[in-house]
Amino acid sequence: MLGGGETSGRNVWIAVGSTVLFFGILTIVVVRSPGWPEIKQQFFNGQEFKESFPLIVRKFVRNIFIFCVAEVFVLLFALVLAVLRSLPGPVFTPLRILSAAYTDLFRGLPTILVILLLGFGAPALNLQGVPVSPYFWAIVALTLVYSAYVAEVYRAGIQSIHPSQVASARSLGLTRWQSMRFVILPQAVRRVIPPLLNDFIGLQKDSALIFFLGLVEGLGEANIISSGDFNFTPYVALSVIYIAITIPQARFVDRLIARDQRRRQAGGDL
């Protein structure tokens, strides 16, 4: 904050005042609208919320399991894709093409299609040794799709490292791969942590799509309760869960970005 103590104190009060006023008016407009009692009964039913929330949380654990496992695989697989695509030299052209084609394909496909195609298609092959668990295919589908995004994030990080760093590493007699491993990747990964976490927030939200494989996770449970009680409040309860886990992460990303900015302004290189 700029400005001395008194001005900044006054600014805080102005900020608080205008915020209270704005949201106060908004609430009054919504609550006094003709359809509000109906909406409140259908979407914001206190009793319904209290009953459905713990049940949904219990099933949401499955989402957490799926996106956590997927995130680990995304981190690794995307890194492989990005490194393949960043290999210099004409020998590696086929690998670069393969990696580029993969990223194009999976960034172009709607996530829900990949989930449906794999989730219903792969088990239907009846091949021996191919798992039939919807958990397995949900994790595979999310990993495939999000690796394409995260690979691009990694690649941007790799390209942001100045060529003089490579020259410096190679001049010590390190191989291409050693330069990548010891000099480029450690710096690149550090730089891309904020955008990478952003993609993970997207992945966590998309874990709701596995509902369409018939797996009773958060959304599945909300759906069951909702159709049993003829009430939409369980969906609101699920929304609260999603927001409760994603907002802290978003704030964390903001803080990382702010920290990086401060360091850059201080003249540091990271």
Binding site: S168, R170, L172, V183, Q187, G268, L270
Partner: peptide, 19 residues
């Protein structure tokens, strides 16, 4: 790589590894 191991170079901009 063997050649570069035997020849050292120092650059104008230092190019130390910042991490």
């Amino acid at each position: 790589n063997a050649v570069r191991r035997r020849v050292g170079i120092v650059f104008q901009a230092f190019n130390l590894f910042p991490h």
